[in-house]
Amino acid sequence: MRSGAYESVRTYRLIVGMWVRSTMAYRTSFVLTALGNLAATGLDFVTILLMFSHITVLGGFTLAQVAFLYGTTSTSFGIADLLLGSMDRLGRRIRDGTLDTLLLRPAPVLAQVAADRFALRRLGRITQGLAVLGWALAHAGIDWTPVRVLLVPLTVLCGAAIFCAVFVAGGAFQFWAGDASEVQNSVTYGGNTMLQYPPAIFARELVRGVTFVVPLAFVNWLPALRVLGEPDPLGLPGWVDFASPAVAALCCALAGLAWRAGLRSYRSTGS
């Protein structure tokens, strides 16, 4: 008996491979939609640039520092969106009954849902996020140490894992409230927008909320404060800046449990 994780990855790769091949059959269309995705996601950054045409510092951060926040969260979110961006279709699948057809196949349902309609154009967001991140790394005046160098890729990967957990948890949520799938957007897209700005501009309660309740602060805020050498508005102990991997693992585990509970509930109620 092969393990569930192996089967999930295998199924996911099979379906994604099929979508990529079918996307690549229309190469021009792919390039255009990827560019569109890049432009669309880049508008957020244009907004920040426009703001900085009037100011030099926002919430204690310079433009290059804000760009670092923007680049890390956008790349993380972009990776999660690329990998699991189809999760928000689950509610629709439940309503129109196509979820049932996934349960008929000898493969994990989560992998099938996640891989469905895999959209390679979402590389646009990742590209754009990485470009901004690259610019930020060169201009933010970071005092490089080996720890800081390591922290940057770790931040992006852990951030992606946390966003992935949010997507899966959001999908699980739709087993009970399929009509309310838009709520998921407030955590995913909303969270991504929030993390583009320095924590200091937000109300203290809100920052606490995204640190302890929905731990989005670990996507980039806390490690970024360490990389950029900025003080933590909540005054948390220094080690939390390195807690992202543990938080990401915990989030993924909880999201996985939520998914299993959701699927079990679906299989016993059928709706």
Binding site: E7, L14, I15, M18, R21, S22, D96, G97, T98, D100, T101, L103, L104, R105, P106, A107, P108, R117
Partner: peptide
Amino acid sequence: RTRLARRIGVVFGQRTTLWWDLPLRDSYEL
């Protein structure tokens, strides 16, 4: 469920179990 899935075949008249946007051949390959 998954072990059983290998030993049964299911056809729903009202909805397809194939991948809506893929050609038949790709669906079969999958």
